[in-house]
Amino acid sequence: MNRPAPDLLKPRKTPQQTRSAVTVEAIHTATIQLLLSDGVARLTTTRVAARAGVSVGTMYQYYPHKQALLFAIVERQLDMIVTAMLTAAERLAGCDLQCVAEGLATAWLDAKMADIVSSRAIYGIAAEFDLSELMNRAKILLIDAIRSLLEAVPDAGFTDPDTTAFMLAALLGGTVRVVMESGMADDDFERLRQELPRACLGYLQLVASRQ
């Protein structure tokens, strides 16, 4: 698969004012709606502009072509997930091991499944792009946040918090990805809700040394 170079996917400009931010949000919403109704093959910048209620010229002020628009949608989704996890990490700071494990797993599932229909549509187009840079940035932020949480846990210690944080992040991300790739049913989500917190806690208990 020929993937566009990252430099070709950058938006022409980013919104600086409230009005511009509202316009970009309308464009993003229209894009997801068209992806869900008609699929990526029929999606065009002209159709997105019409659905969003903006001119094609306004569209091109931000996104030079369809691929740049789709990449922005994927990047936005990833940023939302990372922000949700960093917010959860702040909330969980100083909590005990069980609270941290279950809180991180729940926050991850909440972020990934906040709008499962849209998430599936976005997940379907993500493979078209080289996301290594975005994913690496997100991985660093997430692992740093988890490591800080583990170092502050009052009822356990970790001889290698970096590795533990890495493995916990991999457990969170890999588990949900496998289920989504196989076509997740409603009962699969419910099982993840029950079992992922247990899996995270079990791993942390296994590698932790009690204080």
Rank of each mutant, 00 (worst) to 15 (best):
Glu102Thr: 12
His65Asn: 15
Gly103Phe: 10
Gly157Leu: 09
Ala185Arg: 15
Ala93Cys: 05
Ala41Gln: 15
Ile73Val: 15
Ser55Phe: 08
Gly183Lys: 07
Ala169Ser: 13
Ala93Ile: 05
Val153Pro: 04
Tyr203Glu: 02
Arg76Gln: 15
Val176Met: 08
Ile122Gly: 05
Asp96Gln: 07
Phe189Ala: 14
Leu204Gly: 01
Leu86Arg: 14
Val24Ala: 08
Ala101Val: 06
Met85Leu: 15
Gly53Phe: 00
Leu109Cys: 03
Arg91Asn: 11
Pro197Leu: 04
Leu131Trp: 02
Val56Trp: 00
Ala165Thr: 04
Leu171Cys: 07
Pro154Asp: 11
Thr87Asn: 14
Gly94Ala: 11
Leu97Asn: 07
Ile125Ala: 01
Glu128Pro: 00
Asp79His: 12
Val100Asp: 04
Leu204Val: 01
Asp187Thr: 13
Glu190Met: 06
Ala26Arg: 14
Asp79Ala: 15
Leu142Gln: 12
Met184Asn: 00
Arg193Ser: 11
Phe158Arg: 05
Asp188Cys: 08
Thr29Glu: 04
Arg51Met: 03
Pro11Phe: 10
Ser182Lys: 14
Asp155Lys: 06
Ala50Arg: 15
Ala114Tyr: 03
Lys10Asp: 08
Glu102Ala: 11
Ser37His: 08
Cys200Gly: 01
Lys13Val: 10
Ile125Val: 13
Val100His: 03
Asp79Asn: 14
Val117Ser: 05
Gln98Cys: 03
Met167Pro: 00
Cys200Ala: 15
Glu151His: 07
Ser119Arg: 10
Ala5Leu: 12
Ser148Cys: 06
Val178Asp: 09
Ala93Ser: 14
Cys99Phe: 04
Ala68Ser: 15
Leu201Tyr: 14
Ala41Trp: 06
Val100Gln: 03
Arg3Glu: 08
Leu201Pro: 05
Ala49Leu: 06
Ala84Val: 02
Ala165Gly: 09
Tyr63Ala: 09
Leu196Pro: 01
Glu75Val: 07
Ala126Met: 13
Thr31Ile: 02
Ala145Thr: 06
